[in-house]
Nucleic acid binder design. Structure first.
Lengths: 186, 186
DNA sequence: GTCTATAGCTAGATAGAC
DNA sequence: GTCTATCTAGCTATAGAC
């Protein structure tokens, strides 16, 4: 067969999901092959540099998602900042499936090759924080206060996902999202 | 040699540290052996059920630490709630070394054997949340409000450690700790 | 209680047919 | 571009000397 057996977009999504759930060390090539529906050798054909490249690629998917669903929304001055905030929060809610999904940015911070991903992960977190700063300033906060609150919100989202996943209590996530507008109130 | 070559307490600490840093899958027996200074076979002598038992043991260390440094402090009605809160925050600051250390509770939530640790991890998080609820009520919050704020604080701590580790910016952790008293203000 | 040595397996990665 | 088959290295875990 000359054509791709598996829809590339679906492969991307499966890589993202598998690394998110199991982390870098936990996502073995065999698991990744089964998740994507491709054999190991086929994965190496698409990602010659192997597992590390697959994880980097999954990270770039996240980065693109952030740019499209967070950064571009936060920078859209045609909308009221309150509306932008609402859209951003809704997007985050959907990305993490109401608190059921792990965050790839977090899972890739732990493990044998964590250093290889640190730059991209750090950049993604900075994009998120900057987006909230942007919105917060437009909502009337001083730059300093905006920065301080954004540095609370991004951790809060991350941690609520940790707690929601660990305890099974998704209200950790839901409540944290609900608290964000208050944290940015002038 | 009949006696233990390595101080057991030091072995405990090294297991805790190694699992915290690398996670379950990332902490190989070889790495654990080098970290503790014991050979692999010696580790199996102390932990007959292998790596999973070692991680469970590390978790029980954390649980004990929480009971001693958080729960018992939060329940000490001889101290003003504000003083208890201060002590608890200081203890957390020290445990995570000002934001430099990963949290074992988090690292063990991801990986191939995450389910095996879920019960203990969940229990630890509940202990932490309950301790903050306890203090919050004594500070004057309604039980409902106390619960709500505690469900913000535990995630905030966790997430700030994720961000601090990922970005290298420890102010995420420091600022989050500093924000706790305000979050519990009546 | 610690060690050396090794079993048995799975990991990531590659060769080469189709 | 996908596959089967396989390599080597590393993994968890065990056996048995001291």
């Amino acid at each position: 067969m000359r054509t791709q057996k598996v829809d590339p977009e679906n492969v991307d999504m499966k890589l993202f999901e598998t690394f998110s759930e199991l982390g870098y060390d936990g996502a073995s090539m065999e698991v990744l092959a089964q998740a994507t529906g491709l054999k190991k050798a086929s994965l190496y054909h698409r990602f010659p540099d192997g597992k590390r490249e697959m994880a980097q690629y999954a990270l770039s998917i996240v980065e693109g998602w952030i740019l499209q669903n967070i950064v571009s929304v936060s920078a859209n001055k045609n909308l009221k900042p309150e509306s932008r905030l609402k859209k951003v929060i809704a997007a985050i809610d959907e990305l993490y499936n109401g608190g059921e999904n792990n965050c790839l940015l977090r899972t890739l911070t732990v493990g044998t090759d964590a250093n290889a991903f640190k730059e991209k992960v750090s950049n993604c977190f900075n994009l998120l924080a900057d987006a909230f700063i942007d919105i917060a300033i437009d909502m009337g906060l001083s730059p300093k206060a905006a920065k301080q609150q954004a540095k609370l919100i991004t951790p809060l989202i991350q941690g609520s996902l940790v707690l929601a996943g660990a305890t099974g209590d998704k209200s950790y996530f839901k409540n944290s999202l609900a608290q964000i507008p208050e944290l940015l109130a002038a």
